[in-house]
């Protein structure tokens, strides 16, 4: 076992005890929320990196609505992980959804149904290879735009993806922007996702404003850490973070030197 310096985010997501499962997020749904001031895309990068570097039997299906492959490739390369090589090894599947747009009124559901078929096809193949799979969606709000604002279609797709967590033991990780829904507009999407999520990661700017040393704060809510006596305990972690090119630095408030 090589030495790893796990940080608070690993601990909060349960990524540090890699003896337990082939991939600790198996069967779990992680919802990541952020806002305009503080982007939480780095959480996805971090999960990607951990999945590839610490868990050799894991595979990732990535639905990119927001950034191109070359962007993620460059970001992950600086984190010490070669996405292009992983893609060639059959551990990384990148679905480029940047130009994806559901057709108009005429053929409802057609677009997203085909997306799910694509997902399922990849998952079944990977499942036969005994890989532990993560499905990552990099931006639900873009998915909504692609679906022409039809919340029902989006929720259907997300629910289907969520069923895969129990059916195949996949991990499902999605990013959404919380502040869009704060005024109650189409809040169903975020509320249902928050309800379904096993782990909720919220990124917020510091209340005192931005600073060079602290880029924001994370709150990680783990809804079912233990099932002792049938009671699921909710565990929360609060910490500050600083994003660097080669990783992130997590620390409790006030403990940064």
């Amino acid at each position: 076992m090589e030495q790893k310096n796990w940080n608070l985010l690993d601990e909060a997501l349960g990524l540090h005890n890699n003896n337990a499962k082939p991939w600790p997020l198996c069967g779990r749904f992680v919802l990541v929320e952020d806002c305009v001031d503080t982007s939480a895309a780095f959480v996805l990068h971090h999960i990607l990196k951990r999945s590839f570097s610490s868990y050799p039997s894991s595979a990732v299906l990535f639905l990119a609505f927001c950034h191109t492959f070359s962007h993620y490739d460059r970001v992950l390369r600086k984190l010490g992980c070669n996405l292009a090589a992983q893609r060639d090894n059959g551990r990384f599947f990148f679905l480029d959804m940047l130009m994806f747009q559901c057709p108009g009124e005429g053929k409802p559901n057609y677009g997203l149904a085909s997306v799910f078929e694509q997902i399922e096809r990849v998952i079944t193949v990977l499942h036969q290879e005994k890989k532990s799979i993560s499905i990552i969606i990099d931006d639900i709000s873009f998915l909504e735009v692609a679906a022409n604002g039809s919340s029902d279609d989006v929720l259907n797709l997300l629910h289907y993806c969520h069923t895969l967590t129990s059916e195949y033991g996949c991990a499902f990780i999605a990013l959404d922007h919380k502040d869009i829904y704060l005024n109650g507009d189409r809040a169903a999407v975020i509320l249902e996702m928050e309800y379904l999520a096993d782990i909720l990661v919220k990124a917020e700017p510091l209340a005192t404003g931005l600073s060079k040393d602290v880029h924001g704060q994370l709150m990680v809510l783990d809804k079912e850490t233990q099932h002792q006596h049938g009671i699921s305990a909710i565990k929360t972690y609060d910490f500050h973070f600083k994003i660097k090119e080669n990783g992130i630095e997590c620390f409790y408030p006030g403990t940064k030197i």
Partner: peptide, 18 residues
């Protein structure tokens, strides 16, 4: 300046003043 572009990187651009 609310956001500065961060293509190909995950590090946010923190300006001296906004």
């Amino acid at each position: 300046v609310h956001k500065a572009a961060r293509l190909n990187t995950q590090v946010p651009v923190i300006l001296e003043a906004t």
